[in-house]
Every structure is written in structure tokens, then in C-alpha cells.
């Protein structure tokens, strides 16, 4: 390129900037509806980041599951609860000092970790290697998912079933106790 910046870096820079800005605005926004919509923006950008990381299947899963199901669920709950805007009080908790202490502890921990990782950036031999030129990404994911990760795949199915049944069960139980 003429400017000395290649297209990959440009796309990554835009996606990273949009994700960081939208998540900061989401965390600091007063209105919960705005929070959910800004996280939706972040999730869509992240789906395209997954595409640049070479996985078109995970981009589709990210868009369908996160943008299509999870955040719509959040939006339904925000409308169901009918939150007022947090204009009267601060949007942050009262025990600010304790929480910032925990946050700074994590920040320092992560800084040390990044420093250690930056020193040793050589990658070792891959455990389950794949060649993207031979077959596409979806083929490899399916191959290893159904050959090496079959039991976790079954377990995640049971977890989803239990989550759905548990949600229905919890809501039903409260309804019966309120009527009694």
C-alpha cells in the first residue's frame, strides 16, 4: 500500500477501536437499553474479528447466538423490568474503594502476566494441528469436535437443556408460591 499500512492492519484497527469504544460506552451509559445496544455493536464487530481470525463458522455462531439470541434476551428483560433511568443516584456502587482495590489488583496481575507472556512469545508444537489450505475451517472444527471432543459436546448439550428447564422451573415455582 502507498501509505505503508496494509489492509489487514487497517481492518483490525477499525474493529479493535469500535469494540473498545462501544464497550466503554456500554459500561458507562446510564440507560440499560443503551448498554445492551452498544454491546450488540461490540458483538457484531467481534464476529467480523473472528472472520479475520480465519473462522467463518464461528462468525456465524457468534452472530446467531450472541446477537440473535443472548442480547435479544437481555433486551426483553430490560423492557420487562421497566427500569427507570439512574439519574437520581450514581450508576456505580457505594463501596467504590473496595471495588477499585479488587480492580487494581486484577490490573496489576494482568500486567505482570502480559509482561511474562511478552518475554516468551515462541509457540510450541500444536496439539491438534490443522492445515487451512487443505480443508476449510468448518471441516476441521467438525472433525475434531466429533472425534476428540465428543463428550464435552454432549455435556454442553445437557447444560443447555438444564439451563432452559431450570429457567422455566424457577419462574413457575415463584408463581405458585405467590398464589398460595
Amino acid at each position: 500500500m502507498g501509505l505503508g499500512i496494509d489492509l489487514n492492519s487497517l481492518i483490525f484497527g477499525y474493529l479493535a477501536f469500535a469494540m473498545v469504544v462501544s464497550s466503554v460506552l456500554a459500561v458507562f451509559s446510564k440507560n440499560p437499553v443503551h448498554t445492551v445496544l452498544l454491546v450488540l455493536v461490540m458483538v457484531v464487530h467481534q464476529a467480523f474479528l473472528l472472520l479475520t481470525l480465519g473462522s467463518e463458522f464461528l462468525m456465524a455462531v457468534q452472530l446467531i447466538v450472541y446477537a440473535g439470541a443472548v442480547l435479544v434476551l437481555f433486551l426483553f428483560v430490560v423492557y420487562l423490568i421497566n427500569l427507570r433511568k439512574e439519574t437520581k443516584h450514581s450508576i456505580f456502587v457505594k463501596r467504590f474503594c473496595l471495588c477499585s482495590l479488587v480492580f487494581l489488583l486484577f490490573l496489576g496481575f494482568m500486567g505482570v502476566n502480559l509482561y511474562l507472556i511478552y518475554g516468551a512469545k515462541k509457540f510450541e508444537q500444536a496439539v491438534l494441528p490443522f492445515n487451512p489450505l487443505e480443508k476449510d475451517n468448518l471441516w476441521w472444527i467438525a472433525h475434531y469436535l466429533f472425534n476428540y471432543y465428543l463428550l464435552p459436546f454432549e455435556i454442553i448439550g445437557v447444560i443447555l437443556l438444564v439451563a432452559v428447564l431450570g429457567a422455566v422451573f424457577l419462574v413457575r415455582k415463584v408463581k405458585t408460591t405467590e398464589e398460595a
Binding site: 473462522s55 447466538v65 434476551l73 492445515n131 476441521w140 475434531y144 454442553i156 447444560i159 429457567a167 419462574v171
Partner: peptide, 28 residues
């Protein structure tokens, strides 16, 4: 992507499924 190892992609798949279950229970 950088290690040419499929394990990370499979973990992303599991994390997304787990996040869906977590959101359902948390919102309930």
C-alpha cells in the same frame, strides 16, 4: 489462528454455548 491448532476454535464454540446457558439462568 497463530498456533495453527484447532483447540481454540473448539473452545470458542463451547464458550458461546456456555454463555447462552449463563445468560438464561442469570436473567431468570
Amino acid at each position: 489462528y497463530f498456533k495453527k491448532d484447532i483447540t481454540g476454535y473448539v473452545m470458542v464454540f463451547f464458550i458461546i454455548a456456555m454463555a447462552a446457558a449463563e445468560a438464561a439462568i442469570g436473567l431468570t
